[in-house]
Design a protein around this nucleic acid. Structure first.
Lengths: 122, 122, 122, 122
DNA sequence: GTGGTCTAGACCACT
DNA sequence: GTGGTCTAGACCACA
């Protein structure tokens, strides 16, 4: 569990968890078949409520990134590298559509956005 | 008032309003000194509560994009073109920092992001 | 009429007018018997509403700093230097009581306040 | 909640609340990490509306004196003693600049102001 | 349980 | 006419 939770963030905790775990899965950091820690243990480690962890795990299952085996635990789903790339892009593109709409609302061109993005990327 | 409100959106109404008005100001669509519609009228036009409009206007004032004169109305603040560009970039960069962090969490390189962005931008 | 009105200020315009005129009277800048400009003219000069000027003049009359002669105009009242000093101190002390309560609420001692005040006074 | 609200005061209730809480924080009376009472409870205690309390809390958050954790409560922010002193002085100096401008408008010298202030301070 | 948002409606101050 | 404040009360998201 290499996860950083910030209660100061405006983003709900369960979603911070979901975002970070799903990114780790789709980046290949957490391999197919990997067993996530039990929610109780994760809750203790991260100092958050069990309910919150459960909500994140549920979201992961709904996105078909993990699957739960009752009495055994939660396991990262099986993907081909191709599927993984597609799922990752889907997820990123869904967010990017929102981001681009925001940039466009300020009248920024694609080139201007890339220029600003370059600075932010360092 | 060229504004589109979606009550279905997960984003609060007052923030949708703030985002759109501030973008219009920083894009130059609403010139310095322009008088925004009275909150009551805007509320009727947009079919939302006066208070919700007021909350958006308050945020705009706090961001120094407009200034309120009791008994007169709310007016777009005075900017030099230079200030306007700086304010716009500040606002965009603040959001972009979050976006980039998200992209990076999936292990995407700058080039990959630009490639995806190009598609989204059409 | 050496008066500066700021519509940006949070203080109502009529009170800005009242404050500045009363200060000028109690400072001796506007001598006893001096005739204030007619409200219509003042309104034009300051680019504000006649009603607003009238409200300020009424406040001045209520504070016995001016007296109105119908059909003639508004004149600065007659004071002995002693009365003037007393009126000025009354007015300042009334505000100062509020200010001191504020400073005290932060736990500042008299000496600390004087030290800060010295900087502000330059 | 050691707060005194006067509905007779010309100052808005939410600002009285803000002033008193912020003073208590910057005086060290409310320590870092302290959990403010829930807005509903504070509203009952003070006999005012929940919304009015919320508005005060919002101002406190905007001034970075507290931070809100949805579902948990509102907590006094973390400061070093140095930061606390700086924040306190910033707040006091902002008000003092207005006060001094007022005193000066009556032609009072720094020494005269200190003399009057001494009396008021008792 | 917490805070976040939105509602309708009232009253006041300022112009 | 304008905005500023305060009210009661409802519904939702989060922990």
């Amino acid at each position: 569990m290499n996860v950083a939770i910030s209660s100061a963030s405006e983003k709900p905790i369960y979603q911070q968890l979901f975002d970070q775990i799903s990114a780790q899965i789709l980046k290949g950091e957490l391999p197919s078949g990997y067993c996530l820690p039990p929610i109780r243990q994760a809750a203790v480690e991260l100092q958050i409520s069990v309910i919150t962890v459960k909500k994140a795990w549920e979201e992961l299952e709904r996105s078909r990134l993990i699957h739960t085996v009752t009495g055994k635990g939660c396991f990262v789903a099986e993907f081909t590298p191709e599927e993984m790339r597609r799922l990752r892009n889907d997820m990123v593109l869904r967010q990017m559509a929102i981001d681009v709409a925001y940039y466009k609302s300020f009248g920024l061109t694609f080139e201007e956005v890339v220029a600003l993005l370059k600075d932010v990327y360092e």
